[in-house]
């Protein structure tokens, strides 16, 4: 399937030029309204306070100004030396790993159940996993906070039988719960689509040769659905990494996730340069994850085109 599609993409000279021109409008839009500000922001974090950055520079506190032509890493050094920042990076990475792991397990469970058992119930479960896609994140965060808080559902249910359940509002755990809730749909869609496309014949053959359910899954289904699973993983991780709304509503004052830190450094501490250092940190971490995505895609493209 994939091979024929790639081969069928036309690549003649004039058509290639036409294709390039057609692809330009959205790229220009992004380059002007997102790319340029990003470049300027990174420049500001390196101490370049002139040009459009002079607006911010005129009210910022604790600013590091470039002394050499390319800039200075002083703002980065300052942040890395802050214990609080290091803790927040660690928590952000931890929440990202935990949420991604839980999301992946749930998505795999839902998808395998749909593939191997099938039926109306399995379909209903999969549909259930997609519902959060359609709920705005602000509402989701708020709903989750009230559900797990001191006077929320969980504690109410336990109180019915005289037990005292822990209040989960404003904890790191709440951020993980919220992140899992909001990221689940995309992962379910990716993973189940990947696993659905494994042909019946392959599964039957593996089973006929005596492989159990676990082995069939591990050595046949998962390798064949490798790419969608990697995509689900990387997109979930990148989404959680830079999230703001969920941790802002449901998380504790300390430790905090980096997305919330940006807001604080901007507004509450009046240190926009340091805020951008945090933004760049998120971007670098996300790029690290994105490499996994690109690697997986190229690996599969190469192995299939050869």
């Amino acid at each position: 399937m994939r091979r024929t599609r790639v081969a069928a993409r036309s690549s003649g000279q004039p058509r290639a030029v036409l294709g390039f021109v057609m692809a330009l409008p959205p790229l220009l839009l992004i380059a002007v309204f997102a790319g340029l500000p990003i470049v300027l922001a990174v420049g500001y974090s390196l101490g370049h306070t002139g040009g459009l950055n002079s607006v911010t520079a005129s009210y910022a506190q604790h600013q590091h100004v470039a002394t050499s032509g390319w800039g200075t890493f002083a703002a980065y050094r300052e942040m890395l030396a802050t214990g609080r920042f290091r803790t927040d990076v660690a928590v952000t990475v931890l929440v990202t790993l935990l949420s991604t792991a839980v999301v992946l397990v749930l998505a795999l469970g839902i998808a395998l159940n749909l593939r191997l058992r099938g039926g109306r119930v399995a379909g209903a479960i999969a549909a259930l996993g997609v519902i959060p896609l359609f709920i705005p994140v602000v509402i989701a965060s708020w709903a989750i906070l009230t559900f797990y808080s001191t006077d929320g559902f969980i504690r109410s249910v336990f109180a019915q039988v005289g037990l005292d359940a822990p209040a989960l509002g404003f904890k790191v755990v709440t951020i993980v719960i919220g992140s899992v809730w909001t990221s689940l749909p995309f992962a379910v869609l990716m993973v189940s689509s990947g696993i659905q496309s494994v042909p019946d014949a392959v599964i039957d053959a593996a089973r006929d040769s005596g492989a159990g359910l676990l082995r069939t899954t591990r050595s046949v289904i998962l390798p064949m659905a490798f790419i969608p699973i990697v995509i689900a993983t990387t997109f979930t991780a990148i989404g959680v990494l830079g999230s703001f709304t969920v941790p802002y509503f449901t998380g504790p004052n300390s430790p905090r996730m980096l997305g919330v830190d940006i807001q604080n450094y901007f507004a509450a501490y009046n240190q926009p340069q340091q805020a951008i250092v945090i933004a760049v940190t998120i971007f670098v971490l996300a790029s690290g994850i994105a490499v996994l995505y690109i690697w997986a895609n190229f690996r599969s493209a190469n192995s299939k085109d050869l």
């Binding site: 506190q61 004052n253 430790p255 905090r256 604080n264 450094y265 509450a268 501490y269």
Partner: peptide
């Protein structure tokens, strides 16, 4: 006050 807000965040909650 801005600096105090930050110092409090750094030094008090969760420590």
């Amino acid at each position: 006050t801005n600096d105090m807000n930050k110092a409090w965040d750094d030094k008090v909650p969760g420590k």
